[in-house]
Protein backbone atom coordinates (compact mmCIF):
# COMPACT_ATOMS: atom_id res chain seq x y z
CA UNK A 1 0.00 0.00 0.00
CA UNK A 2 2.66 2.45 1.10
CA UNK A 3 4.89 1.56 -1.77
CA UNK A 4 2.26 2.23 -4.35
CA UNK A 5 1.65 5.68 -2.91
CA UNK A 6 5.36 6.47 -3.09
CA UNK A 7 5.63 5.32 -6.69
CA UNK A 8 2.52 7.33 -7.63
CA UNK A 9 4.06 10.44 -6.15
CA UNK A 10 7.26 9.71 -8.02
CA UNK A 11 5.51 9.47 -11.38
CA UNK A 12 3.67 12.66 -10.54
CA UNK A 13 6.92 14.47 -10.11
CA UNK A 14 8.29 13.05 -13.33
CA UNK A 15 5.20 14.17 -15.21
CA UNK A 16 5.26 17.70 -13.85
CA UNK A 17 8.93 18.20 -14.64
CA UNK A 18 8.33 17.05 -18.20
CA UNK A 19 5.34 19.39 -18.42
CA UNK A 20 7.50 22.22 -17.12
CA UNK A 21 10.06 21.51 -19.80
CA UNK A 22 7.41 21.64 -22.50
CA UNK A 23 5.96 24.82 -21.07
CA UNK A 24 9.41 26.32 -21.15
CA UNK A 25 9.83 25.39 -24.81
CA UNK A 26 6.42 26.82 -25.74
CA UNK A 27 7.08 29.99 -23.78
CA UNK A 28 10.43 30.38 -25.44
CA UNK A 29 8.84 30.05 -28.86
CA UNK A 30 6.18 32.59 -27.93
CA UNK A 31 8.84 35.04 -26.82
CA UNK A 32 10.72 34.46 -30.04
CA UNK A 33 7.65 35.18 -32.13
CA UNK A 34 6.43 38.19 -30.19
CA UNK A 35 9.96 39.49 -29.92
CA UNK A 36 10.23 39.57 -33.68
CA UNK A 37 6.87 41.24 -33.95
CA UNK A 38 8.03 43.86 -31.53
CA UNK A 39 10.94 44.69 -33.77
CA UNK A 40 9.00 44.66 -37.03
CA UNK A 41 5.68 46.23 -36.07
CA UNK A 42 4.87 49.78 -35.26
CA UNK A 43 3.41 50.47 -31.84
CA UNK A 44 -0.05 51.93 -31.78
CA UNK A 45 -0.20 55.34 -30.17
CA UNK A 46 -1.46 55.14 -26.62
CA UNK A 47 -3.94 57.80 -25.75
CA UNK A 48 -3.11 59.58 -22.54
CA UNK A 49 -6.64 59.06 -21.28
CA UNK A 50 -6.68 55.84 -19.21
CA UNK A 51 -10.49 55.82 -19.17
CA UNK A 52 -10.62 55.51 -22.95
CA UNK A 53 -7.92 52.83 -22.89
CA UNK A 54 -9.92 50.84 -20.33
CA UNK A 55 -13.08 51.17 -22.43
CA UNK A 56 -11.13 50.17 -25.54
CA UNK A 57 -9.73 47.10 -23.81
CA UNK A 58 -13.15 45.98 -22.60
CA UNK A 59 -15.07 46.69 -25.80
CA UNK A 60 -12.57 45.37 -28.30
CA UNK A 61 -12.60 41.98 -26.55
CA UNK A 62 -16.29 41.72 -27.46
CA UNK A 63 -15.70 42.25 -31.17
CA UNK A 64 -14.70 39.70 -33.74
CA UNK A 65 -11.92 40.35 -36.18
CA UNK A 66 -13.49 39.55 -39.55
CA UNK A 67 -10.29 38.57 -41.32
CA UNK A 68 -8.93 36.33 -38.56
CA UNK A 69 -12.16 35.00 -37.23
CA UNK A 70 -10.94 33.16 -34.18
CA UNK A 71 -9.54 36.36 -32.73
CA UNK A 72 -11.03 39.44 -31.18
CA UNK A 73 -10.38 42.96 -32.38
CA UNK A 74 -8.30 43.38 -29.23
CA UNK A 75 -6.16 40.32 -29.86
CA UNK A 76 -5.55 40.64 -33.56
CA UNK A 77 -2.57 42.22 -35.21
CA UNK A 78 -4.23 42.43 -38.65
CA UNK A 79 -4.61 45.70 -40.52
CA UNK A 80 -8.36 45.30 -40.27
CA UNK A 81 -8.26 45.13 -36.48
CA UNK A 82 -5.86 48.08 -36.32
CA UNK A 83 -8.20 50.18 -38.46
CA UNK A 84 -11.18 49.29 -36.32
CA UNK A 85 -9.27 50.08 -33.13
CA UNK A 86 -8.17 53.43 -34.54
CA UNK A 87 -11.75 54.25 -35.49
CA UNK A 88 -13.02 53.20 -32.06
CA UNK A 89 -10.45 55.40 -30.30
CA UNK A 90 -11.32 58.38 -32.45
CA UNK A 91 -15.02 57.94 -31.73
CA UNK A 92 -14.42 57.59 -27.99
CA UNK A 93 -12.23 60.69 -27.96
CA UNK A 94 -15.09 62.52 -29.62
CA UNK A 95 -17.27 61.56 -26.69
CA UNK A 96 -19.28 58.76 -28.29
CA UNK A 97 -20.66 56.07 -26.02
CA UNK A 98 -19.81 52.37 -26.24
CA UNK A 99 -23.27 51.69 -27.65
CA UNK A 100 -22.71 54.25 -30.41
CA UNK A 101 -19.35 52.71 -31.29
CA UNK A 102 -20.89 49.25 -31.48
CA UNK A 103 -23.77 50.55 -33.60
CA UNK A 104 -21.30 52.19 -35.99
CA UNK A 105 -19.48 48.90 -36.48
CA UNK A 106 -22.62 46.77 -36.77
CA UNK A 107 -23.97 49.11 -39.47
CA UNK A 108 -20.86 48.45 -41.52
CA UNK A 109 -19.90 44.88 -40.75
CA UNK A 110 -23.15 43.38 -39.49
CA UNK A 111 -23.96 41.45 -36.32
CA UNK A 112 -21.18 39.07 -37.22
CA UNK A 113 -18.65 41.43 -35.71
CA UNK A 114 -20.23 40.84 -32.30
CA UNK A 115 -19.07 37.78 -30.39
CA UNK A 116 -22.42 37.85 -28.59
CA UNK A 117 -25.15 38.03 -31.20
CA UNK A 118 -28.17 40.15 -30.23
CA UNK A 119 -31.42 38.41 -29.35
CA UNK A 120 -33.74 38.81 -32.34
CA UNK A 121 -35.82 36.74 -34.73
CA UNK A 122 -32.93 35.23 -36.67
CA UNK A 123 -30.93 34.37 -33.57
CA UNK A 124 -33.79 33.19 -31.36
CA UNK A 125 -33.04 29.52 -32.04
CA UNK A 126 -29.40 30.13 -31.24
CA UNK A 127 -30.25 31.60 -27.85
CA UNK A 128 -33.11 29.29 -26.91
CA UNK A 129 -31.78 26.13 -28.59
CA UNK A 130 -29.77 24.87 -25.61
CA UNK A 131 -32.71 25.36 -23.27
CA UNK A 132 -35.07 23.60 -25.69
CA UNK A 133 -32.64 20.69 -25.92
CA UNK A 134 -32.35 20.61 -22.13
CA UNK A 135 -36.15 20.56 -21.78
CA UNK A 136 -36.39 17.68 -24.27
CA UNK A 137 -33.69 15.76 -22.41
CA UNK A 138 -35.44 16.26 -19.04
CA UNK A 139 -38.77 15.20 -20.54
CA UNK A 140 -37.24 12.03 -21.98
CA UNK A 141 -35.60 11.27 -18.65
CA UNK A 142 -38.82 11.77 -16.67
CA UNK A 143 -40.89 9.68 -19.08
CA UNK A 144 -38.41 6.81 -19.16
CA UNK A 145 -38.00 6.81 -15.37
CA UNK A 146 -41.75 6.71 -14.90
CA UNK A 147 -42.12 3.93 -17.41
CA UNK A 148 -39.44 1.91 -15.66
CA UNK A 149 -41.06 2.47 -12.27
CA UNK A 150 -44.40 1.25 -13.60
CA UNK A 151 -42.80 -1.84 -15.11
CA UNK A 152 -41.14 -2.70 -11.77
CA UNK A 153 -44.41 -2.30 -9.88
CA UNK A 154 -46.32 -4.33 -12.43
CA UNK A 155 -44.40 -7.53 -11.67
CA UNK A 156 -46.96 -9.71 -9.87
CA UNK A 157 -46.63 -13.42 -9.52
CA UNK A 158 -49.36 -15.82 -10.48
CA UNK A 159 -50.35 -18.40 -7.85
CA UNK A 160 -48.50 -21.07 -9.84
CA UNK A 161 -45.29 -19.03 -9.81
CA UNK A 162 -45.74 -18.30 -6.14
CA UNK A 163 -46.09 -22.00 -5.46
CA UNK A 164 -42.92 -22.76 -7.38
CA UNK A 165 -41.01 -20.10 -5.54
CA UNK A 166 -42.15 -21.49 -2.23
CA UNK A 167 -41.14 -25.00 -3.13
CA UNK A 168 -37.71 -23.77 -4.27
CA UNK A 169 -37.22 -22.02 -0.95
CA UNK A 170 -38.30 -25.11 0.89
CA UNK A 171 -35.89 -27.26 -1.07
CA UNK A 172 -33.06 -24.98 -0.12
CA UNK A 173 -34.07 -25.09 3.52
CA UNK A 174 -34.13 -28.91 3.43
CA UNK A 175 -30.64 -29.06 2.01
CA UNK A 176 -29.34 -26.84 4.79
CA UNK A 177 -30.87 -29.07 7.42
CA UNK A 178 -29.39 -32.26 6.06
Amino acid sequence: MNRSVVSDAGSGVAFSSRAALWMGVVLGLCLLVTGRHGLAGEAEPLIADPVIEARMAALSEELRCLVCQGQSIAGSDSDFAKDVRREMRTMMENGRSDAEVVEFLVQRYGDFILFRPPVKGATLLLWLGPFILLAIAVAVLVISLRRRGRRAAAVTLSSEELHRAESLLEEKGDRKDS
Binding site: L66, Q69, V106, Q107, R108, Y109, D111, F112
Partner: peptide, 9 residues
Amino acid sequence: DPSKVPSPL
Protein backbone atom coordinates in the same frame (compact mmCIF):
# COMPACT_ATOMS: atom_id res chain seq x y z
CA ASP B 1 -17.76 29.45 -46.15
CA PRO B 2 -17.12 31.24 -42.85
CA SER B 3 -15.16 33.99 -44.59
CA LYS B 4 -18.31 35.07 -46.46
CA VAL B 5 -20.00 37.40 -44.06
CA PRO B 6 -23.40 38.71 -45.16
CA SER B 7 -23.27 42.46 -45.65
CA PRO B 8 -25.74 44.55 -43.69
CA LEU B 9 -25.52 47.15 -46.45
